[in-house]
Design a protein around this nucleic acid. Sequence first.
DNA 1: CCTAAGCGGAGTGACTGCCTCCAGATACGC
DNA 2: GCGTATCTGGAGGCAGTCACTCCGCTTAGG
Lengths: 225, 225
Amino acid sequence: MTETGAPKKARAMRRDAVRNRERLLVAARELFAEQGLEVTLDDIARHAGVGVGTAYRRFANKGELLAAIFAGQTVELAAAADAGLVDPDPWHGLVGYLETALALQLRDRGLAQIVSGDRISVEQYDWNREVMAPKNRALVARAREAGVLREDIEGTDLTFIQVGLNAIMTRSRDAHPDLYRRYLRLLLDGLRARPGSPTPLPVAALTSDQTHAVMGPTSRSTAIG
Amino acid sequence: MTETGAPKKARAMRRDAVRNRERLLVAARELFAEQGLEVTLDDIARHAGVGVGTAYRRFANKGELLAAIFAGQTVELAAAADAGLVDPDPWHGLVGYLETALALQLRDRGLAQIVSGDRISVEQYDWNREVMAPKNRALVARAREAGVLREDIEGTDLTFIQVGLNAIMTRSRDAHPDLYRRYLRLLLDGLRARPGSPTPLPVAALTSDQTHAVMGPTSRSTAIG
DNA sequence: CCTAAGCGGAGTGACTGCCTCCAGATACGC
DNA sequence: GCGTATCTGGAGGCAGTCACTCCGCTTAGG
């Protein structure tokens, strides 16, 4: 689109422009983590302390901004999988991966949405297939071959397990952030090839009152509808 | 609200009015089941083959229409819980309840949203607390006392289990409607007090390609964001 | 056959979210 | 310093959505 012929003399960005671009990236990271991918570019600009016009000069649209921070959002997840793969104990590696991955998603709502396929863009879509899917397969294969994981589990199961736990996490995040760990543990007990006695649960069940509060209309959900 | 004093001479509804009211209720039930509670009253009116004006003459707003069909949407769920409670085998009763409840939610997207606390209204909110919560508690208590369910499970766990499985169901509904049963089974294996060998899974895992397809942007989710 | 009750659906108003425009401010080469 | 290309902020345009209203025409039914 732009002229890309001989080494054209392109003037460098002005210093304030660079600074504002950086501010926007930081603000975007913060807001995506806090509120999810549905924040508007206007939100991000306000949070960065710049005008919307500035935001749109730096990034053609929200997708482009998202793409610019995408690598940072996902590198940790890939690292968690790699760490699990080099763990000498395959079961411990698999469990550690799920625990780390979900803890990351607890801290970063946007990442949770990417993993769960919510409001996904093409990059994220392909990244799931090309980067994470093979790692998931390898983690599962290793644990299965070591005889600690049920024979009938596949790599794709890790995806759906995260989808389910993400839903629980989303509901309970504000009042009981680590409730999801309870259900992760129950699921893991169901994944063992030769289950022993049940593992103690790391988090107590909610009381009826707490459940009622958590299941009520949230700021984000439109009541009545 | 309406005058309910002496036997007032109130003219009966015209026959076409009655017919249209019925059509609207049927259309609402269908659309809520198919598409969830976020359908508009305009959608419902069109689907019923009447004008929006007619819809608003019969029901002051969408909430009122929803309230009118609410009982029908939830009575089956309560019945499933009662059936589970009278099952001679407490474990079988608990499992049967979850299976039936989730099967109902597979067929009725609106019901799934009510159970998961999505786009909830006050009636639904209270119904969860006052009707379903005690049944859930009883089902869990019975299975626990029979020694077949882990000691550390509470009635509220049934709620969150359904939230998680609903999320999986929502993603996979179109292409692989019963995939959620796979994860329900895994969870149930994790819920046993004294687990034996793993129960066979009723549904195969998705392949990587199938997972990729299912996790992609859906008609309902706004891509890029 | 008369008329109150009912009908359809275009239209209204309130939002929300993406993005553009441009008058004024600012960095930076000379 | 000065002049200008670059950048800034935020008001507002535009398009889409959705709940709900209004009103001229139709129709049930006494």
